[in-house]
């Protein structure tokens, strides 16, 4: 178990170094950073001086090492656009995105998995067919369209929920949260629903397919032949065997929730990282872009690590051979 985790950790570090390298390359290849910093009237001597004091004339590996050392400490320098440290800018936005993604992921799991189980068990039922048809819509409608439709119905026509922004947040030791008060939670509902819809339908269809597969297996037949109740067979035996692929996909999808959040955050003017990143691209705010890249990579790596550990917890067959290969 320990060697398995250590090996996974080492792989994670390699991934992060690679991403860090790409992020760093942004500085060198997307324009000259000196040009972005000094005024138009700066003389060549002044440019040279700036280059020297900032260490930009050092060899490439030295610069990269310096970047990496700082990045590990969370220091990505100053944002060109906001003129505040990147870490601060992201720190302000991170809670908004994480909360949004968290709520969306929880909704997708809590609704998608039961629906998948239901449609898997009642394969030919009328309700299953209706759910599957609706899920097709969920999978094919683009996020921005769903967002705008929801705003139209729930904010404009019904006036139940706010259409943009985080609304009233509560400060929890520096973490601005939408989750602790009903007023704040109202603001997160629409963006979270928009964000989760695709994942929800994907999960539902995945769980359904896996259930159908597992229900055909001999051990399910044998469990039924032993007189176990439907409940014990379906949930105790079948559902557990669908979990490995479901966890894989859920892990990957949480990563892409963060990616998809860019669009949702734009539609709902949600002040999260996605919006920050989009603005950074428009202004070629390279430190922010680099930091965002590294952060997303870091989140992906952490999620994958958790997924791998969950495999271990679920499937005893992985525990024996030590290699723990699960992909």
């Amino acid at each position: 178990m320990l060697t398995y985790i250590v090996r996974r950790l080492l792989q994670s570090v390699l991934v992060l170094i690679a991403v860090g390298f790409i992020a760093f390359s942004l500085f060198s290849y997307v324009g000259d950073p000196i040009n972005n910093m000094v005024g138009v009237e700066a003389t060549d001597a002044e440019r040279e001086w700036a280059r020297k004091t900032l260490g930009l004339d050092d060899p490439f590996p030295v610069q990269f090492a310096r970047f990496a050392a700082k990045a590990v400490q969370g220091d990505f320098g100053q944002s060109y656009r906001l003129s505040i440290p990147v870490a601060t800018a992201i720190g302000e936005r991170l809670p908004a995105t994480l909360e949004l993604v968290f709520v969306a992921a929880v909704m997708a799991l809590l609704i998608g998995v039961p629906l998948g189980v239901y449609t898997g068990l009642h394969r030919d039922g009328a309700i299953s067919r209706i759910l599957l048809t609706i899920s097709l819509i969920g999978i094919s409608l683009p996020t921005f369209l769903i967002g705008i439709l929801l705003i139209m119905v729930f904010s404009v026509w019904l006036g139940w929920l706010p259409s943009f922004g985080r609304g009233a947040t509560v400060d929890l030791w520096g973490w601005e949260s939408n989750l602790v008060s009903w007023e704040g939670f109202k603001s997160i509902i629409l963006p979270a629903v928009t964000l989760c819809l695709f994942q929800l339908t994907l999960l539902m269809r995945l769980v359904r397919a896996e259930m159908l597969e597992v229900l055909r297996t001999d051990y399910i037949k044998f469990a039924r032949a032993r007189g176990l109740t439907n409940r014990a067979v379906n949930f105790g035996h079948a559902l557990k065997n669908t979990l490995v692929p479901v966890i894989t996909i859920t892990g990957l999808q949480i990563g892409s929730l963060i990616a998809f959040a860019i669009i949702t955050e734009t539609v709902f003017q949600w002040p999260g990282m996605g919006l920050l990143f989009l603005q950074a691209i428009q202004f070629v705010d390279i430190p922010v872009m680099a930091a965002y890249l590294c952060l997303v990579a870091f989140i992906f790596v952490v999620i994958n690590l958790i997924v791998d550990i969950l495999y271990y917890a679920i499937d005893p067959r992985l525990r024996l051979d030590g290699s723990g290969h699960a992909h």
Binding site: D218, Y219, A225, R226, G227, G236, H237
Partner: peptide, 30 residues
């Protein structure tokens, strides 16, 4: 009646047991 009065044994022992549940648990459950 199943398991209690009439039991069934299937052909392939390799696939007849749930791989994620201990043998003991499958027995006590039954």
């Amino acid at each position: 009646l199943r398991g209690n009065q009439i039991a069934m044994i299937f052909q392939d022992p390799l696939t007849s047991l749930n791989p994620l549940i201990t043998v003991g648990r499958q027995l006590t459950e039954t």
